[in-house]
Design a protein around this nucleic acid. Structure first.
Lengths: 115, 115
DNA sequence: CTAATGTGCAACCCTTCGGTTGCACGAACT
DNA sequence: AGTTCGTGCAACCGAAGGGTTGCACATTAG
């Protein structure tokens, strides 16, 4: 429910590359920086940086297993971002308003709308 | 839903200033660049630029009335962005999965005209 | 017509940020 | 032990982008 959190989520998702990473991790279940970089036209360090940004936004969680660190998705902050959008759009679109209700009833996580 | 559209929406919402503008327009109903700039520590031209970015993302619509141009919210693209997030989160959170269903059943396309 | 208000456009700084290279450290495998 | 694989960190570079100033164009009031 903290505004800064929503802020970081949107900032993180604002970059197409990071959204691509989120998407990829979503389909793989989990992945390491080198794994992800293998299928991308960028360096491992670049991916690592983006993963750090995503982790800072709370969208992914890093877990060190032996000599590799696996990243998994932690989609809870997405709920907050969705709540923000639903809240803003509620005044204009009644269907989004209904969605906001849906989120408020526990879908998002610590779903307290408003920014 | 077109991927490029979602791209622009996230990019537009990625900036805190633009999100602030969206929020302000949401509460006011409609506003002009000078009106918005009056309550912000930035120039009118800066606001106008951000509004142009938001308009490009399809989040606001400009309407010239006499010598002033009023901006209103067109929250339709928000639905697409939410659908993207729900899609990604579906694999990890069944509740977000249910939300995805909800969006698929028609909440995504808005009543807003689009340019 | 003249003045004032509201915009739009263009050029220009300066910070931010994504990406790179290079190197050092920890962990597994032989 | 030594080697190899996977990370992390720091410095650097170039493009992108938000903000500014300045000016020209439209529209309304006197």
């Amino acid at each position: 429910m903290d505004a800064g959190s929503v802020d970081r989520v949107f900032a993180a998702l604002g970059d197409p590359g990071r959204r691509e990473l989120v998407r990829e991790i979503s389909t793989r279940g989990s992945a390491t920086a080198t794994e992800l970089a293998a299928d991308l036209p960028v360096t491992r360090q670049a991916v690592a940086k983006q993963l750090a940004a995503l982790a800072d936004a709370g969208l992914v969680a890093a877990t060190r297993q032996g000599r590799e660190t696996r990243y998994e998705l932690t989609p809870a902050p997405l709920g907050e971002a969705m709540a923000w959008m639903a809240n803003v759009g509620a005044a204009w679109d009644s269907r989004l308003g209904a969605l906001r209700e849906h989120l408020a009833s526990g879908a998002g996580e610590g779903s307290a709308p408003r920014t």
